[in-house]
């Protein structure tokens, strides 16, 4: 009897935890009638704005993706290879380039998530489902922030690589001036 009560309690607690997850995923604040009415009245404008933002993001992503890849592939990798061929210690540059390449992969992944969440928001009828629309826009905003954060980190990584090359120049000044590696 005792065992069954313990089991029931565990099931109840687990059940409550599982059931509460979607609640937290939804809008945490209760929306007022005025707020819902405002979403409905500005529905068409909001959807048009979302479509415009979504369309304008596409070429930005395409250009950035191409340039980020080319920098890693045609600049960083080639310099690291050249330094290694000349028997220089390029381990720091290789490390930064590796982190940079990981960030490029993350950039593609988070942009995919962002694109999916934007599509979900645009496909939601804000006249019939204003609360759902609001939640999906909030989710798209969070995804967009993640894309922005990765872009900031990529920029920092590019600057870090440049600084590392300059540091390499200072540390290997003698060998570089003579062109001979001891």
């Amino acid at each position: 009897m005792k065992v069954s009560i313990v089991r029931l309690t565990i099931f109840a607690v687990v059940g409550m935890m599982v059931a509460s997850v979607p609640v937290f995923a939804q809008s945490t604040e209760i929306m007022t009638d005025e707020h819902i009415a405002n979403i409905k009245s500005n529905c068409q404008i909001a959807r048009a704005s979302l479509s415009r933002v979504h369309a304008n993001d596409a070429p930005t992503y395409v250009n950035r993706n191409q340039t980020y890849f080319s920098i890693g592939d045609k600049m960083m990798a080639t310099l690291n290879s050249r330094l290694s061929l000349n028997r220089f210690d390029a381990s720091e540059l290789v490390r930064i380039a590796s982190e940079y390449n990981d960030l490029v992969v993350q950039f593609r992944k988070v942009y995919r998530d962002y694109d999916d969440s934007m599509t979900a928001a645009m496909n939601t009828d804000c006249l019939k489902q204003p609360v759902g629309f609001y939640d999906k826009v909030a989710k798209a905003r969070e995804s967009r922030k993640r894309v922005h954060d990765i872009v900031v980190r990529l920029t920092a990584s590019l600057k870090e690589y440049r600084r590392a090359v300059q540091q390499f120049e200072i540390e290997n000044k003698d060998e570089l001036s003579t062109g001979v590696k001891p």
Binding site: M31, T32, E34, H35, N38, I39, N42, I45, A46, S49, L50, V53, D57, T60, N63, R64, T67, Y68, S70, I71, M75, Y114, C126, F133, Y134, V137, A140, R141, R144, K145, V147, H148, V151, V152, L154, T155, L158, R162, V165
Partner: peptide, 28 residues
């Protein structure tokens, strides 16, 4: 490197303000 990275050094893209409630007109 400076020349070719110049076009991506501006990190003011995908800014969150574009999707703010007020910008979209869906704020309270």
């Amino acid at each position: 490197y400076d020349k070719q990275t110049l076009q991506v050094m501006n990190d003011d893209v995908f800014s969150v303000s574009t999707l703010e409630d007020q910008t979209l007109g869906i704020d309270e």
